[in-house]
Amino acid sequence: MSKPVVATASLAGCFGCHMSLLDIDERILKLIELVEFNKSPIDDIKTFTKQCDIGLIEGGCCNSENVENLRLFRKHCKVLIAVGECAIMGGLPAMRNGIPVKECLEEAYLNCPTVDDNIIPNDDELPMILDRVYPCHEIVKIDYFLPGCPPRADLIWEALVALLTGKELNLPYEVVKFD
């Protein structure tokens, strides 16, 4: 029987959740025995080459590319998991949600003391910034949520193992945190 296939993505995130996944230490050897990776920054596979069983999403949606990528993951993954605070509620990037986009761009590219070009980037190649940052479950259906900033390595590991083996998830208090 072929192994379950896992794909991962970092949308509007800092890659901290991916780092936390690597933080499972030597269990990473067990993980490679358990699953095969497809589209993911971990193996640098850029496009989906097959249907996947589990998709791990880090980060929320702050631009059009994030939305497209997230929809692509929903299409290719049986189970989609929002990993970390940004994927669940927008996180740090969502701190701009109370500020109009125009003001954000002006502050970053025109009024900031360290800029000297004074141009707001506007190229067809660049993804369009959204009016606010959206949690993943406001864009597509998300099946499971793993909170934390980042989610503790033990939480990611336990959740993956529970999902792969069908065993009940029994989490110690210390591993579910929002920071």
């Binding site: 929002a82 605070e85 669940i88 509620m89 996180g91 740090l92 969502a94 701190m95 479950h137 998300i142 499971y144 949520f145 793993l146 909170p147 900033c149 208090y173 579910v176 945190k177 929002f178 920071d179």
Partner: peptide, 25 residues
């Protein structure tokens, strides 16, 4: 409630209740 940036994180009663009731989302 941006827990990761909050000075009260870890000592916050609202967050602690979130933990106690296993609020994932």
């Amino acid at each position: 409630h941006m827990c990761p940036t909050c000075e009260k994180s870890g000592n916050c009663e609202l967050q602690a209740l979130g933990y106690r009731y296993m609020m994932f989302v």
